[in-house]
Design a protein around this nucleic acid. Sequence first.
DNA 1: TTTCTAAATGAGAACGAGTATCACTATAGC
DNA 2: GCTATAGTGATACTCGTTCTCATTTAGAAA
Lengths: 133, 133
Amino acid sequence: MQPKRNTWQREAVRASLAEAHGFVSAQQLHQVLRDSGSTIGLATVYRNLASLADTGEADSLQSPEGENLFRSCATQGHHHHLICRSCGDTKELSATVVEEWTQRVGAEYGFTEIEHVVDLFGLCERCRAAGRE
Amino acid sequence: MQPKRNTWQREAVRASLAEAHGFVSAQQLHQVLRDSGSTIGLATVYRNLASLADTGEADSLQSPEGENLFRSCATQGHHHHLICRSCGDTKELSATVVEEWTQRVGAEYGFTEIEHVVDLFGLCERCRAAGRE
DNA sequence: TTTCTAAATGAGAACGAGTATCACTATAGC
DNA sequence: GCTATAGTGATACTCGTTCTCATTTAGAAA
């Protein structure tokens, strides 16, 4: 649900999320905020991230480890992600091919109300060059 | 890692997994086994599911709630799933289109070692007919 | 068959992400 | 400024999963 009041905490979460390069977890964001002197609480970070995701201001996805990750959302509408598993840097992808395939396969098996999870994890050029993994 | 010994516990997990119709959680499987009189431990169920997934005998995926789900694997090799969100019934899909797209997009952005998560959730014909959701 | 040893197990403790609770704080409308 | 209540924050809690470690046991060797 949309919040009815603006608080500095909500603004801090929004700002901190915008500064992050890729997807970050609530815990990471909380740590960054605390490290920079904020007294914001963990629960508040969770609450605000959830509501930002709810309004479409932020994207959220599950990491392979099952953690919820958030990102300040650049592109409007449905899209997918290509995420560097080392530095978290993210490209937003539109994927007509995938959408079409999704619908076709769903229909073929008589499934309706298809939702799809399509995310790519890889190693970006910079991280590969730096020998990270 | 592959286990070096065969135990009745491992066999029980394998059998119970094969009997389940769709994806099940470790906890569910443990409950089923205990209910049928087994004294198997929860940790053992987790261990064996993980190793079955490791050897390719079982498929695993994350539910939208972040739980790890497992399924006795019918098809060899890489494939995706179309899962009924009501009854858990699952179709295995091969998706050359998606694999190609994955590689192309990865290369385009200079990403390497691309892993992809592609799973479809929908409502199967039977469940739709039954008015479930 | 008996013996031996490390792999595997099981009970429960520990862990970590996320949620709920609830007294307190501070925003926004008056 | 005053007030009602949305929002906050410390912390307790839930729940899935992993770890620990004493005990059991598969399977090789004698």
